[in-house]
């Protein structure tokens, strides 16, 4: 079990030009360690769909890694996305599943206790799957291992689906919903995206 903020600090220390998409309580703590134009706060964009959004981004921008920070409660809200990830997930997508076994954002209600997220991801076909067959599923349960494996995760073709048991002992900052249209356009600007419809399949 890892302290979530320590996980974020380690990731922020190693992150360079990757897009980081975060949702739910990760949106409250990631800004404590990172202020980057390629950070994207997905809160209130659709429950359970942060990794789907991240996959779309990764498909559109194959030259750039996309890291998604989402919780296990969110995964349960769109469990089929594991199968979609296994079918189409591109090599540049990394999903870090922050497993805290609760719906933390809405009060800490417990998740169904018997769900095994590594088994679910494997059952969906992610390991050995994805668009090019390089998909990997793993569980990283301690900070030292995460720090040592992070360079590989950031470099190695994926998609990567990493289950990370975490807890949080810090007081969470207040939720701050604002300017969703501006938020999404700032990310487009940071990616130097022009007017809609400018790209075609190679």
């Amino acid at each position: 079990m890892m302290e979530r903020l320590d996980v974020f600090r380690a990731l922020a220390d190693s992150r360079t030009d990757e897009i980081v998409v975060m949702t739910m309580t990760a949106t409250l703590q990631w800004p404590l360690v990172s202020d980057h134009p390629l950070d994207f706060d997905f809160l209130a964009f659709g429950m359970g769909h942060a990794s789907d959004f991240g996959m779309g981004l990764a498909l559109a921008r194959p030259e750039r890694k996309v890291i998604v920070l989402k919780g296990d409660g969110g995964l349960l809200m769109s469990l089929g996305s594991l199968v979609t990830l296994a079918q189409y997930g591109p090599e540049n997508l990394i999903v870090l599943l922050l497993e805290n076994r609760t719906y933390e954002m809405v009060g800490g209600q417990p998740l169904p206790a018997r769900a095994d997220f590594v088994a679910l991801a494997n059952g969906a076909g992610i390991h050995g799957g994805g668009a090019t067959g390089n998909g990997k599923v793993e569980r990283i349960a301690d900070l030292k291992t995460f720090q040592s494996e992070l360079p590989r995760l950031l470099d190695e073709p994926g998609p990567h689906f990493v289950v990370m048991p975490v807890l949080n002992t810090y007081e969470l900052p207040a939720v701050h919903h604002s300017d969703h249209a501006g938020r999404i356009r700032r990310l487009r600007d940071a990616l130097a995206v022009g007017e809609p419809g400018a790209t075609t399949k190679e």
Binding site: F45, G46, G48, H49, A50, D52, F53, G54, M55, G56, L57, A58, L59, A60, R61, S78, G80, S81, V83, T84, Q87, Y88, I184, L187, R188, L191, V193, G194, P196, G197, A198, T199, T200, K201
Partner: peptide, 27 residues
């Protein structure tokens, strides 16, 4: 040959994938 075709499991997934594609410059 000029279209990428994806079939997610449910429509909500598809909408989020589409939004990500749009942000990344696709249509």
């Amino acid at each position: 040959e000029r279209l990428s075709y994806l079939t997610p499991c449910r429509e909500g997934e598809g909408i989020a994938i589409a939004a990500g594609l749009w942000v990344g410059g696709a249509k």
